[in-house]
Nucleic acid binder design. Sequence first.
DNA 1: TCAATTCAAAGTGCATACAGTTTTCGCATT
DNA 2: AATGCGAAAACTGTATGCACTTTGAATTGA
Lengths: 222, 222
Amino acid sequence: MRELVRTGDTVEQLVRAISDLIISGDLQPGAKLDEGGLASRFQVSRTPVREALRQLCAMGLVERPPNRSAVVTNVSGEFLSSMFEAMAELEAICARLSAERMTAQEREELESLHRESFDIVKTGASEDYAAFNTEFHNRLYSGAHNAHIQETVLQTRARLAPFRRAQFRLEGRLQLSWDEHEGIVRAILNRDGAAASCAAYSHVSIVGDASRTFASSTATRN
Amino acid sequence: MRELVRTGDTVEQLVRAISDLIISGDLQPGAKLDEGGLASRFQVSRTPVREALRQLCAMGLVERPPNRSAVVTNVSGEFLSSMFEAMAELEAICARLSAERMTAQEREELESLHRESFDIVKTGASEDYAAFNTEFHNRLYSGAHNAHIQETVLQTRARLAPFRRAQFRLEGRLQLSWDEHEGIVRAILNRDGAAASCAAYSHVSIVGDASRTFASSTATRN
DNA sequence: TCAATTCAAAGTGCATACAGTTTTCGCATT
DNA sequence: AATGCGAAAACTGTATGCACTTTGAATTGA
């Protein structure tokens, strides 16, 4: 028994709910996704669950072998590397375009956000810093003033998320990350697209290295 | 005796069939996609059609307003520009990485493919050239040796396809396109990533300009 | 002991049913 | 003619049913 009004976004809610489970690590790569189980868990029938899984599959978060249960995507090390490299390239583009195109207000907001986050670094609260970090990168994406690139990089990030959950737990990453952000911000404020691009590329590459280090130490069974 | 084998790829077939209709221009941007109509057209029930539409939606080829019929995506001019710009950036990356990473065999094949296509240019057969052109760009994507970037650029191209169908009908585009390819090939054979990147960027940008010119002259009704 | 076989339980793929929403169209009113 | 209203038709959203496939455990045979 559900609501009386039909909003028509049941599937969207399921997509968000399931992808949250995946991104948060509650469902790890390789985990089986039973349609009936998910249906009863979310109090809906299998039909919307199937559609949600189909969409998650199109987003790359899930795989659906024919006639078998869907599983959370578990990519090869090689493909994971290609995703990190793609992420670095995309972020480099965003940083370059941001340096060239951000409005005065966007520049100010980026800088003040970055300054604020310094307090978090001092406390060492990696959870809080992760939120700042996400927002910082979001600003780079939107500052590029290119809706399709923004969409693409956000999708890549979501797909990468299950594999870099613990990036800030590595010793010293917090301060280093902030320093790298500092380099990006400075380049953007100077309208130096090439420098912003370089700084963003190496920043994201380093995150990739750190995550791969972590990922390989907790390699998913199966 | 199993008369009916269940391959479990009905939806995949539908996705291909419908996206072909969209990419070929049989279904133009803004066209309504009636679930029941598609179901009877392809001799299946609405269930797999709905799943196919959901996936096409995730791929950006169709939109699904709640409680209303799906429609072939018709983007704003601004978003279209952002897609062309993204395409240029992505192709530039592929060209640069191809210059750096292609194997000797890949280089040879790219060059001979390019040389072959010169015959087509002389005859002016734009349909045939379009096929060569597609293959040429495919080589750039795979030559980058990055599976995720390849996936991303292919998806962007598919999404852009409905809006650049007539790119080679514009006067003189055929020869110009070939000349631009020549520049890309030369840079790649010279292992000059920067030059390849530049050449690819401007090549794709020009295609974008040409297509926008065409698109605006046949603006989709609604 | 272990590989091969069988078969029931569980799960997926697709069709159908039905409830709720949007669209369409006739008809009355201005 | 143009506009507003209401009911029927058309369509979407979700649940359910059933056929087919996979899974896994019990059973058989070597």
